[in-house]
């Protein structure tokens, strides 16, 4: 007689397990953390060289520069989210685990944000100094990055999940993902601009928060569906 296995599964344990694993791998492979960060810094320093060192001009376009650079840095780092797991077969094993794909995908995205989003936020004020950002805008910059970079990771994950099975998916990925980033870019830069005028920017923050919660609930489902197609 066959004994079927059935045990109680802890979703929280599964979530923690995957986050811990991804962080372990990233910390042993530090290039993945450092390279996007270096890219972020270099892109931001290119702008003064291209536009000229005038402080007024720089401080006016600083929010846009920092946010566009953050967007591109996130885009560069997205590849590591599923690519290596797909290449060595661990992605299949995750899809075959009894845990809901939603939980595992969310755990991977959280780990990705901790590895790439968080360092961006930490380094951003330093770059803001280089660009002469208005003093009143620093809080807004940090808050928008804090709420906005997770949205970038969540939406980006959909794009990676769709392109992970394709051999040359890199350029395609940017084509898919960048248009989806536009609302975050608009509201984040507008919040920072508004803060520079010492006006309240809670409205923009609220919209970014709404985008965050919306993508937090919907994106993992889309990622799960996309991964099933990609590993087919």
């Amino acid at each position: 007689m066959t004994n079927l296995a059935q045990q109680h599964l802890s979703y929280r344990a599964a979530f923690a397990l995957v986050v811990k694993r991804d962080l372990t791998i990233a910390l042993r492979h530090k290039d993945d953390i450092i390279n996007p960060l270096l890219f972020f810094i270099i892109v931001v320093t290119l702008f003064p060289l291209g536009i000229g060192p005038e402080a007024n001009t720089l401080s006016r376009i600083a929010p846009g520069i920092i946010w566009v650079a953050a967007l591109l840095a996130t885009l560069l780092s997205l590849d590591r989210l599923f690519k290596s797991d797909h290449a060595d077969g661990s992605l299949e094993q995750m899809l075959l685990s009894p845990h809901p794909i939603f939980i595992l995908v969310l755990a991977k995205i959280v780990a990705h944000w901790l590895i790439t989003g968080l360092p961006l936020i930490i380094i951003a004020p330093l770059l803001a100094v280089l660009l002469h950002l208005h003093e009143q805008s620093y809080a807004a910059l940090m808050l928008t990055l804090l709420l906005g970079t997770p949205v970038l990771s969540l939406l980006g994950a959909i794009g990676v999940a769709l392109t992970v099975g394709i051999k040359k998916g890199g350029v395609l990925l940017s084509l898919l993902v960048l248009p989806l980033y536009i609302p975050v870019l608009i509201f984040a830069t507008s919040a920072i601009d508004t803060a520079a005028l010492s006006l309240p920017y809670s409205g923009q923050l609220a919209i970014i928060a709404a985008l965050f919660f919306g993508s937090l609930t919907l994106a993992p489902f889309a990622v799960g569906a996309a991964l099933k197609v990609s590993t087919n």
């Binding site: 959909i158 248009p179 197609v229």
Partner: peptide, 10 residues
């Protein structure tokens, strides 16, 4: 299927 998911997200 893949394009369909993207169209829905879009």
């Amino acid at each position: 299927k893949a394009a369909g998911i993207l169209a829905l997200v879009g």
